[in-house]
C-alpha cells in the first residue's frame, strides 16, 4: 500500500479493511440464506443428486398438519415463555444486589459472572447428575427435609410426609422444561452484567433527587430505575428470546424417552431432520420458518418498544 492511498483512494482502501467481513457475510449469511430458500423447495437426502426433487412450497404448505413441527414450535415457545422472564428477574435481582454493595460492585459482579462463562456441556452434565431423581443431591436434600418435617407434623396431628412426591426433574414431560429453566438460572451472570452496567451508568443523582422529593422505594424503582435500564431490558429480552428459541445443547444432551418429546425444540428437530433423517429440504424449510418467527419477533419488539425505551441516559448511543 503506497502513501498515495492516504487521500486519493480513501474510498477503496476502507473497503479492503472490511473485505474479510464482506466475504464472511456472503459465505456465511447471504449465500446460505439463498441456498436454504432454494433447498426448502426441494426434497433432498443430501447424499445423491437423484433424490433431489422440486416441490415448490410443498413443505411450507404441509407444516400446519405436521405434528412434529407443531410440537417443536410449541415446545420452544413454551420454554421461551418460561425461561425469559425467569432469566430477566434473576439477572435484574443479581444486578440490584451487586449495586447495593457500593464500591465492592466490581468484585461481586465478577464473582456472579463466573458461572455464565462455565455454561456448556460440562455444566449440563453436572446438572444432569444434580437433578437425578433417585440419587441426585437435590432430591436427597428434599427427601431429608420431608423426613425432618415428619416429627413436627405428627405433633400437630397432620400425619406424616410419607408418600410425598419427589420431582422427577428431567424424566417427565411436565418437569423437563422447568428443570432447564432452573439450570439456566445458574448462568444469569451475562444478563446481570448488562443490567449492572446500565444501573451504574445511570448514577445516583436522579435517585437522590427523587428521594428528596419524597418518592418511595417502589416509585423510585418504577420511575427512575426502570427507565434507566430500559435499553438494557430491551436488549436482554430480545437476546433472551432469540437464544431460548435456538436452545440446542441441553435438549440434545438431556433428552430421554420419559420426556415424551417434551424437549423436542425447534433446533433439535431441525438437527434430527437434517442429520439423522437426511431430510435436508424439510429441515431447510423449518429453519426458514424459525428465522421468520425470530425476525418478526425482533422487528416488532424493537419497533413497538420505542415508546418506553429511553435512550437519553445513553452517552451518545449508536
Amino acid at each position: 500500500m503506497s502513501r498515495s492511498t492516504k487521500t486519493g483512494r480513501l474510498g477503496q482502501t476502507g473497503f479492503w479493511f472490511v473485505s474479510p467481513w464482506l466475504a464472511g457475510l456472503l459465505l456465511l449469511y447471504v449465500g446460505p440464506m439463498f441456498a436454504a430458500a432454494l433447498l426448502s423447495m426441494t426434497t433432498w437426502d443430501g447424499l445423491s443428486w437423484s433424490s433431489l426433487k422440486w416441490v415448490g412450497l410443498g413443505h411450507f404448505r404441509s407444516l400446519p398438519d405436521d405434528s412434529y413441527f407443531i410440537k417443536a414450535l410449541t415446545n420452544s415457545a413454551v420454554y421461551t415463555a418460561m425461561n425469559v422472564p425467569v432469566q430477566l428477574l434473576g439477572a435484574l435481582g443479581l444486578a440490584l444486589l451487586v449495586r447495593q454493595s457500593g464500591r465492592w460492585a466490581g468484585v461481586w459482579g465478577a464473582f456472579y459472572y463466573v458461572p455464565h462463562v462455565l455454561s456448556g456441556v460440562a455444566t449440563i452434565l453436572i446438572w444432569w447428575w444434580l437433578l437425578n431423581p433417585q440419587v441426585g443431591p437435590i432430591n436427597r436434600a428434599i427427601a431429608t427435609i420431608y423426613e425432618g418435617l415428619n416429627g413436627p407434623m405428627a405433633a400437630v396431628g397432620l400425619g406424616g410426609t410419607e408418600g410425598w412426591p419427589l420431582p422427577p426433574w428431567l424424566y417427565s414431560p411436565t418437569w423437563a422444561k422447568p428443570s432447564l429453566v432452573m439450570m439456566n438460572l445458574w448462568h444469569v451472570g451475562g444478563g446481570m452484567l448488562i443490567f449492572l452496567a446500565a444501573l451504574l451508568r445511570g448514577g445516583d443523582t436522579v435517585h437522590e433527587a427523587a428521594m428528596l422529593d419524597g418518592a418511595g422505594r417502589l416509585d423510585r424503582f418504577l420511575h427512575v430505575t426502570l427507565p434507566q435500564i430500559s435499553p438494557a431490558l430491551l436488549f436482554n429480552v430480545v437476546t433472551g428470546v432469540v437464544l431460548s428459541m435456538q436452545a440446542f445443547g441441553p435438549a440434545y444432551l438431556l433428552q430421554n424417552w420419559q420426556q415424551r418429546d417434551g424437549l423436542l425444540f425447534c433446533v433439535l428437530h431441525i438437527y434430527r431432520s437434517a442429520f439423522e433423517d437426511h431430510r435436508l429440504g424439510y429441515a431447510a424449510a423449518l429453519a426458514w420458518v424459525l428465522l421468520g418467527v425470530l425476525i418478526l419477533f425482533t422487528g416488532t419488539t424493537v419497533l413497538t418498544t420505542r415508546r418506553w425505551v429511553h435512550y437519553d441516559f445513553e452517552e451518545g448511543g449508536l
Binding site: M33, Q246, W288, L291
Partner: peptide
C-alpha cells in the same frame, strides 16, 4: 441486523457450503 440473526438457523445451508 446480523447481530440479531440466529446462527443455528444457518446451520444446514452452511453445512452444505
Amino acid at each position: 441486523a446480523t447481530m440479531m440473526l440466529p446462527d443455528q438457523v444457518m446451520l444446514i445451508p452452511q453445512f452444505l457450503i
